[in-house]
Design a protein around this nucleic acid. Structure first.
Lengths: 360, 360
DNA sequence: GCCAGCACCGTAAACGTTTACAGCGAAAGT
DNA sequence: ACTTTCGCTGTAAACGTTTACGGTGCTGGC
């Protein structure tokens, strides 16, 4: 771990000035003889350019941050999986922040953009407060938000369409003959929670089903809370024949509860999740889920950010990713799943196959 | 995105020198009046310290890199989940690299340590070549390796114990009365592949079972390849009554194949995976899996690295994490799973519950 | 009244780059 | 032969911090 060589060391050994060394290393026009000497010296010394000094001068770190609510949630991981290669291809490194959905932590990340250790930020906040908006407006580096922001906010923005997503699910359940469709949601003060609640109400209305608050329960976006909420709902209203869940983790919790209660899925109760994470494809029974395009959103966000880094002055853009319904056993039964597998060999089964590499 | 204030701006406005500003901002003893003026100026200007300049001077970036073979593999994500909070608590940021298990890319990451944009590196290579070892020995920043390295390599090192892990699984299958236990492995030129192959042979011998290469198949560590390999094995040797799989993704592939072949799991063929990822708990049927302690290994690696950063001269350490067998439906049937769930409320079900946060 | 001691502060150098600018020698134009 | 041009190179400043060192003005002791 000896002190490494710098361009000074090279300059000395090659008998030239540091300016020449820098020019050679950056491929600027230089006499052939000088190039040779410098490269030889650099090679002998095992020189590696100091990225920190370079960043100080060039005001570019070639790093980008991604701030997510929870690194344990597969949704964010699906995003990271897409963001990373896009950035890598453009020569950027990815710095990860897990904020645990704590507003203060998110504000802190935004604030720390001023430290200039990254060139830009992709953030996916669960709640968007005024403080968020103020910080985004004055941020010292470009920001891309994954998730909805108030109309008129000047920021590059990638959105899902929960409304359509929920409708796809409710329509599917309706067509299967389900009429008492319960809803297990996450907190209403989160952006997705609020959007999905509204969408559920609308979708019922479109189908002429009554809104019954007895079969709606609010918990939180993780498995244990999903289980708790589903249990409460079932105790109160044993007659539900379907459960729409606001994400896959909630749906997995609901499956646990239904299994423990001796109810069959989907014969007695059909279950739909949301986000279409790896867990949906692998669950037991496999979970019908509304894909909100996490992968596509991650990719889009990375691309928006790269564009922004190349052109600071263009208008902010909004990208909306279309949802789609991935039908599996928890609504259509095992037969349907086998059918799907046979035909399309595809989507439902292949998603986790992206995974390469092994285990150390 | 205006040019931000620097300590010069503050010094000017507060009517003091930049040295005083720096002292105040770093909490060094200063007259009360000066402190007040500087802090007021900093506040008014919305000053944020430039991390790059600070790093250049202090030779510390407070960043740490984690290089994994594949960001899509849940094993590495389990590690990231543990590494991140440990580093965050110590004031470090996490930079992610996905090398796709390409040796050249891994060497490149090691090489780039010379750029000094991170203070240290955690790496989990699938294959360890001489080039790896050479680069590690001469690296310009401390490195922690997750995975086995040759005896005598001077590097902080966290290992799993595949040998014991495989034995746990084989013993379990033996006790269930299985006698023809097939093995679906990953590439033999990888560290885990080689270790697991050796362990499988030993475990059979201990139980007095013959080694039969007809029921051993080598594929790769992901689902599609696992499925391919399992299919080949079953075609060749229809009589197997259990499949030991070298990781969970392979096991999921095997489950796909068994289901398609109309074989019941575990009645006809019991299946064991390895790594105990989230997917194992969620799969269909839920998958008995050998946990090699990915989470613990990630945590241990982060702690080793932090210790090393605080003391560059101490002896390298090796931490070995003990494996354990998590029994689920793919060997013990559904009853057993319900049983376990009732009793311990625990391990088998709780693992994915760590997940907090929701979906944007 | 003089000097030592002290608390505080400013000047300047340093970290390792990039780059504007000027200098220099040689080839080319008048 | 004298300038102009040109290609190449070196000097030095700059990026925004931290910090060693010396200076200043004050207090207190003799």
């Amino acid at each position: 771990m000896a002190e490494g060589p710098t361009i000074n060391t090279i300059a000395e050994r090659a008998g030239v000035s540091i300016a020449s060394v820098s020019r050679v290393l950056n491929g600027l026009p230089t006499r052939q003889e000088t190039v040779r000497k410098v490269l030889a010296a650099a090679e002998e010394l095992g020189y590696v350019r100091n990225a920190v000094a370079r960043s100080l001068k060039s005001r570019r770190t070639h790093q980008v941050a991604f701030a997510m609510a929870d690194i344990g949630n597969p949704v964010y991981l699906a995003m990271v999986r897409q963001i990373q290669p896009v950035l890598k291809a453009a020569g950027y490194r990815l710095v990860l922040h897990s904020t645990d959905a704590i507003v203060a932590d998110e504000i802190d990340v935004l604030h720390s953009l001023g430290e200039r250790y990254v060139d830009g930020l992709i953030m996916s906040p669960l709640r968007v407060t005024n403080e968020h908006l103020k910080m985004i407006a004055t941020a010292r580096a470009p920001v891309v938000i994954i998730g909805s922001v108030p109309e008129g906010t000047r920021v590059d923005n990638v959105r899902a369409d929960s409304r359509t997503g929920v409708r796809l699910a409710i329509d599917h359940l309706y067509e299967l003959g389900r009429r008492r469709i319960g809803f297990v949601n996450g907190p209403l003060d989160t952006v997705p929670g609020a959007a999905r609640a509204a969408a559920y109400g609308e979708a019922l209305k479109e189908r002429g089903l009554p809104y019954d608050e007895e079969i709606v329960e609010v918990g939180d976006f993780y498995r244990a809370e999903g289980a708790r909420a589903a249990r409460a709902l079932l105790d109160r209203a044993p007659g539900v024949d379907a459960l729409m869940c606001a994400n896959d983790l909630i749906a997995l919790g609901a499956l646990d509860v239904l299994r423990a209660a001796g109810l069959r899925v989907p014969e007695d109760v059909a279950v739909v999740g949301m986000d279409d994470t790896d867990l949906a494809a692998a669950s037991w029974p496999s979970l019908t889920s509304v894909s909100l395009g996490s992968a596509e959103r991650g990719k889009a966000a990375a691309e928006l950010l790269l564009d922004r880094l190349n052109d600071m002055d263009s208008q902010p853009r909004v990208v909306t990713v279309a949802p789609r319904l991935v039908i599996r056993a928890s609504t259509a039964g095992e037969a349907a799943v086998l059918g799907v597998r046979g035909e399309t060999s595809g989507e439902t089964v292949n998603i986790p196959l992206q995974s390469k590499g092994g285990t150390p």
